[in-house]
Structure formats: structure tokens, C-alpha cells
Design a protein around this nucleic acid. Sequence first.
DNA 1: GCCGTTTTCGGCCCGACTGTTTTCAGTCG
Length: 570
Amino acid sequence: MKNFEISQIFRDIADILEIKGENVFRIRAYQRAAQSIDGLSEDVENLLKEGRLTSIPGVGKDLSDRIREYINTGKIRIYEELKRAIPEGLLDILNIPSVGPKKAKLLYEKLNIRDIRDLEDAISNNRLQGVFGIREKTVENIKAGLAIMKRGRERLTLEEAAVISEGFLEALKKSPQVKKISPAGSLRRQKETVRDIDILITSTKPKAVMESFTGLSQVRTILAKGDTKSSVRTQENVQVDCRVVEEKSFGAALLYFTGSKDFNIRLRQIAIRKGLKLNEYGLYKGQKFICGRTEGEMFKALGLRYVEPELREDTGEIELAQKGKLPGLLDLEDIKGDLHAHSSWSDGLNSIEDMAFVARKLGYSYIAITDHSQSLKVANGLSLEDLKKKKSEINRINKKLKGLRVLYGTEVDIDSNGNIDYKDDILKRFDIVVAAIHTGFKQSRQQLTKRVVRACQNKFVHIIAHPTARLWGQREAYDIDLEEVFRAGKDTNTALEINAFANRLDLNDRNCRRAKELGVRMSIGTDSHMAGHLNSMRFGVAVARRGWLSPKDVINTLPLDRLLKEIKKR
DNA sequence: GCCGTTTTCGGCCCGACTGTTTTCAGTCG
């Protein structure tokens, strides 16, 4: 499957063309094609074989030629030429927030900055200031942008980690020596970001497992290779540790390697108080092995209920486990529908029908198509005229479609004063209204808080989407008083969203737990811009679980009729 | 470079915000 490689090259080409200052529409054509290719459910090689490349939206004669060239020769001539035109590291500089093509070009031409390292050197030597067009503020912004980007790179998003880990698990399961296998570490606890990936395996032939593991195609370098433990670095430059234990120690090792560290320390203290010893091989009384095969029997022996991995942070869960009062956590299966998704009516890639079809395949009974509203021109926000047409399209689909209801939704913009950009008589016609801030992120804490509170007070707004707007590795959360927002949400029966898109996860786990404490109801939405994104729901559920949420805390666990009733209660 | 119930040429997503050799270019969404 070469889809990802090709879309990546198209994006690189677009970036280089931008730096070179080429025709913006040509650049956009490459970007659009890249996005389409990412959204394909088919292998481009198949499309080539069947002569259907130009059926990809945004791919015409020239770009289909480029795709063919790549599949047949492994290279694209004009890409190779473009790469020679500018240093490779310059493309990386474009990833720094506040640095775009013009500034990258300026830095290169005036200061011969060719990559991030050159840029950092230039900053520390104060060489940036004095360059035409760059003064104090710009330098500050570049510094801050560098920090945000680096933090984003040190840790993987949960989705990136899950994809890499699942690749390893799938490959290793094929090895006959591998009996039990599980991810461990922060990935198993479903933290929103993950540094490296831990995999735990049981086998009677650990050496053979180590051979299989270190020999996998996704491995770029072997960092360590022993009889029962090896570490590798993947093609994506991510460290993966693999350990093999005996079957009888699997539970103990899983417990130990899942962590968190604080949680483990507490468990060991509890063991000591019971005159026991806990380590990664099992629970012992003196020399005598008591248990270790499963986590369940370990918890039981320690006098605790089973603690779900997502809760293992020593923030009160151990006490509740001792009393048997842990909350019953939300599961992916509890989710009845997605309340935040876009279609090609605004800036989504797929039609409403495509989105609905995939939602039904996921077992949902409803999906809200919440396209952007009129003021968000960049995202092709819908005019009043568009709304009529979209509504009748939804009606038509709902008549035809069995087993799933498409909800007529919108993601409206909260303007800089907290007003919504459709009038009430328009708003009241929607099944679902999601409201969010898209501009003015740098307003004061007071102003931002006021905007969101005012949006909650609009009786036609049902959900506040991505309440802090943070984007992992790209943008910090804006400065907002969430306590006040939570109170407004509670008072007005406005749900707050857990945006499940992997680099948002907004609200995050901690905010989510606090919202629940204050009695706010939550909604989990994927913010999908293509059908494939609908699968992100699992990451939103992960945040909810880490935020201690039960099904009753989340509105989209409700069946359709109850959902529609509940959200209208004011 | 794509695309077409006005078009095979001439459109294509544009407004807000920021910082800056202050009347506007660059970046972002």
C-alpha cells in the first residue's frame, strides 16, 4: 500500500512550491490530492491497475501521471528536482508554528539557515534580530513555536502509538512461539501521549521471540537484544521495548510494566502491610509464590477490586478499589452515535451518505453531520441557501437508510463577543447544534471565558466543541476559566465535548474528571473530516475512561429518542 | 494543477490577527 508515501510526497511538493513562491492554486491542487489519497479506503495500486486514478477527487491527468510514475519507478522526477532546489531541512522548519514558507525562505536566504539546528544556533547567537522583517516579537514567537513543536515530537499521540503498537502485535502474533501478548506502559493506560511502546509476551522460547521481534520489517535499528528483553527503534524513530516472561508471571509483569510508577509503589506498600512481597514475577509470602498469572488474581490477593489500566495513576482509585466503589467505566460499545462530523458540504472529504454508511458499519444508530456555519469561510461554511439543500439531502437519505438516523447538525462559530453566527430561527431547526471558538484564541482569559459561557446560555446550543482548542504539537490551549465554563454547562444543560481527534483530545482526562465532579454532561465527538476519522471514537472513549466517566455521564450513550429529549431540556 | 447544468478558460477559500522599514505581508484556521 503506497497511499501514505504518495500523499506525503505530494505534501512535500506543495511545501517546496510554497517556499519557491509558486502559483498558490497549483500548491493547493497538490494538497487537495494528498488529502484525498489519505482518505481512500482502497490501495492506489489497485486504482492504477483498473485505470481509475482520476476518480480520486483532485487528481487529474498530471497528478495521475505522477502517481503512476511513483508506483512504477519508485520515484517522481519533478519531486527529485524540487528537492534539489532547497535544503531538505527547510521543510521541517515549516512545521514550527508561526513560521511559514516566506519566513523559512527569508531565514535560508539571509542567514543560510538550512534546518532546525541552524535556526536554534542563530537564535542563541542573536543573529535573527536585525534581519529585514524580523524583530523581537517574531523571535519570541519562533522560540515558543519551537518549544511547542519539540514537545509534540518527544511524545507520540495516542493514535500514533496505537498504530505502531498494533503493527507489532499483529506481526508478533503470527509467530508460533508467542502465546499471550499485550501492550503495557502508558499506552495501555491510554495516556493522551506516549513516549515509547512496551510489549509483553509469554513464551516458552523467549530467544526465538527475540529473534522474531528484532527481525520485523518495521525495525530500523536494534538498541538492545537479550534473551528475554530487547529494544528497537522503528522506521518512525520510536522506541519499542519487548519483554518475555513465563506464563505464571504474566499478570504480575503486566501489572508492573503498565504502571503508573506511583500506582505500583502504592500496591507494593499494600503488599508489605499484608506481609507479602510484590514484584514483576508475582506476589510472594517469603519465598512462596502465591500468584502472578493474571492481574485479576493479584488484585484479589491484595484485597482490591480490579482497577482498569486507565485509572492506575494513584489519584484516589486505590482507596475506592479497597472499598469496592470504583466507577463503572464507559466502553466503546456504549457509544450509540457520533455527534461531531463534517461532510463535503463544508470542509469534509466525504458525502453525507458516505459518512452515514460508515457510521452504520460501526454499529451506531445516529450520526450528526455538523458542518461549519456561514462565517467560517475558510472551511466553506454553509450559507442559509446551502442549509436548505443540505436539509433536504438529509431527509432523502434518512428515508432511504435503514438502521441509522442522520441528524441535521451544525458546528457554529462563537464570535469574539460570544454571539453565534446563525440567528435563533435558523438554529432552532437543527437537531444538533455544536458551538466552538475558531478565531481570537489570544483574547484575555476573561473575554474567552465570557464567550463560551454566553454560547452555553444560548438555548439552541447543545454542545461546546473542543473547549480549549489545543492541538498537540501545534497550539497550546487558550487561556480560559474552565471552572466557570463547567458551571455554565451544568446550569444550562449544555454538554461539553471530548473531541476524540487524536491531536486534540479536548477536554483532556483531568478536565473531564473535574467536569464530571461538577455534574456536567459530556459528549464524545470525532470531529471527522473524512469517513476514516470516525474510528477515532476509541481515543475519545480513552480520555473519558481516564476521566472516570461512566456511560450515564456521556450523552451519546443514549438511544436516539432519549438523546433528542435530553439535549433540549433547559 | 483541477474542474465544468453558465465555463475547455478562468476561476479556484477568505477573514482575523499579528508584527512590521505604518499601509500591508505573512500566518493561521
